[in-house]
Design a protein around this nucleic acid. Sequence first.
DNA 1: TTGTTGACCCAAG
DNA 2: TCTTGGGCCAACA
Length: 119
Amino acid sequence: MNFYEQVYTVVRRIPRGRVTSYGRIAKMLGRPRAARAVGYALNALRDEADHDVPWQRVVNAAGRISIVNREFGSNLQAEKLRDEGIVIDEQLRLVDFTAVLWVGLDWHETEDLIDSNGK
DNA sequence: TTGTTGACCCAAG
DNA sequence: TCTTGGGCCAACA
């Protein structure tokens, strides 16, 4: 199981209507400083036609959406999150970030998850 | 092997 | 608030 797959495994555990951050995911995987790599992994999803990873539930540590659309005034990630009931303002900030934040799993639990799921 | 590039993070100012 | 700078990790040429 490579790093990307580990990231996806954790992201799939995020409940609907909740969010977490790149850094937290990295921490769950036992790599507290690999946040950038998590973003890189999610970026790679765009090329995969068929996946069930709720990438929209991952934002940066400040509770803001990091993906920039060239199209003015709309943002795919914001739309998806609003569909789940999350309130986002015009500047792509999650209004109630702390309330919807998914604290996630500790390293130990994540390890088990990856083991049982991995090949 | 080296350098560059990100959907990042955090501390300062 | 916002901008900077330094630090980090993984993929890729």
